[in-house]
């Protein structure tokens, strides 16, 4: 089974035009060039594809990919 980081990487690469090499735990929104609308799109896709509800505000407040993965782990554990 793939890790949460792999699942996030798959979504960022396939839906948000991020390159796979960019998706490392320490990468920030700015480094991935994820603007505010891209973060809303990510929030929508996480819910549609993985059933994980994280608001765009929460994603924007997560400084790095590693922090987003931690949020995803926390939310998916509650499902």
């Amino acid at each position: 089974m793939s890790t949460m980081l792999d699942q996030l990487k798959e979504i960022l690469v396939s839906k948000l035009k991020v390159t796979a090499e960019q998706v490392v735990p320490e990468a920030t929104h700015e480094e991935l060039e994820l603007d505010s609308l891209a973060v809303v799109e990510l929030s929508l896709v996480l819910e549609q594809e993985l059933g994980i509800k994280i608001s765009d505000d929460e994603l924007l407040e997560a400084p790095t990919i590693g922090d987003m993965v931690a949020l995803m782990d926390e939310r998916s554990a509650k499902v």
Binding site: S36, V39, S43, L44, D56
Partner: peptide, 11 residues
């Protein structure tokens, strides 16, 4: 409100 509008519009 741009981000909320994006989400609602898409859905």
């Amino acid at each position: 409100r741009g981000r909320d509008t994006y989400r609602m519009a898409v859905e």
